[in-house]
Amino acid sequence: MKKSILLVVIAALVFVLAACGNTSSSNKTSVQKTVTLTVGASPVPHAEILKKAAPLLKKKGIDLKVKVFQDYVLPNQALASKQLDANYFQHIPYLDLYNKQHHTDLVSAGKIHIEPFGIYSKKYKTVRAIKDGATIQISNNKAEQGRILLLLQSKGLVKIKKGVDGVSATLKDIDNIKHLKFLTPIDPAILPKAYENSQADLYAINTNFALQAHLNPKKDALILEGAESPYANIIAVRKGDQNKKAIKELVQVLHSKTIQDFILSKYKGAVLPVK
């Protein structure tokens, strides 16, 4: 009798240990390895959009770290030197120019949103009211020059010469119909402050800086770019990294309905998601 009881106890113990071993093994296979993804971004709207995406990426095993930059040069330097896994602040014409000037090989992993560029004025309420010889302040970002000229051309203020690609157009490539006086270009980050001081008649301001200065492009811009703009903001990575799973997951989440709805709701047309 005692022997039988002992055998039953031993059998039960073996079963429990086996079950524990299976549970441990099962837990090991079910635990998902977390990947850290560090992305550089402009404060508005890029960093805000990324922070909204972070919980969605967490569910996919990606721990998103957002590093905020206030300029347009350091994010690409940090990406090229592998301090970042990706950055989110620029469009392809700017990236192409940066690669050419700095001999880097950064590429787009996907288009995320468009920030319709605006021309602002404290002096004029309508385009028709703009006088011949009006002054205009633009940024020193050469990749934006063609964009500004295309916007001015859309309202008949200048005309880009025949045979010139509008995206790469410069001030030398226009017929200045309204004889606009282009002031010495300045850093794009200080354009909103210059606009407040209002030394010029017109100001060409990037939407991210306009939003930071609490301007509403849809209400405050005299001329505003449309959704058909070729200047979509992208996730940029080092060449080859666009095929990494974590990067693909990042782009997929940023294209999700949750994030697109967030962009439309928060920025009310000042920022438009790319589908």
Rank of each mutant, 00 (worst) to 15 (best):
A169E: 04
S154Q: 10
K161P: 12
V127S: 13
D132C: 05
Y94V: 03
N87M: 11
I130D: 12
A143E: 02
T104L: 06
H91L: 01
D165H: 01
R128S: 15
I136K: 00
K161D: 15
Q137P: 04
I130W: 09
K162Y: 00
T135Y: 05
G133R: 00
Y88I: 02
H91S: 14
I112V: 15
I136Y: 06
K142A: 13
Q101H: 02
V158Q: 13
L150E: 12
I138F: 08
K111H: 11
Y120K: 11
L151K: 05
H103R: 12
A86Y: 05
K100W: 01
D132Y: 11
N141P: 02
A129D: 15
D165K: 10
V127T: 15
I136E: 00
T135A: 08
G166Y: 02
Y98P: 02
E115R: 06
N99S: 13
L151I: 04
K125A: 11
A86S: 13
G156I: 03
K131T: 08
Y124T: 04
T104C: 05
V158T: 10
E115L: 13
T126S: 15
L157P: 06
I148W: 00
I130F: 10
N99T: 05
K142S: 11
K111L: 09
A109D: 09
R128P: 01
K161I: 04
H102L: 01
V167S: 08
S154L: 12
I119C: 03
E144Q: 10
A134Q: 04
D132R: 14
A169H: 08
N141H: 07
L157C: 05
I92H: 05
Y94R: 06
V107S: 08
Y98D: 14
K155T: 13
S108N: 07
E144N: 12
F117K: 07
L97F: 10
G110C: 10
S108T: 14
L150A: 11
V107R: 06
G163I: 01
T135D: 08
K159C: 00
G133V: 01
Q90H: 09
V167R: 07
H102C: 02
E115H: 03
Q137C: 05
I148H: 03
G166E: 02
Q137K: 08
H103K: 15
V158E: 05
P93H: 11
K100S: 15
Y124S: 10
E115C: 09
D96A: 14
L106I: 08
Y94W: 13
N140I: 01
E115M: 14
G146R: 02
I130N: 12
E115N: 11
S121G: 05
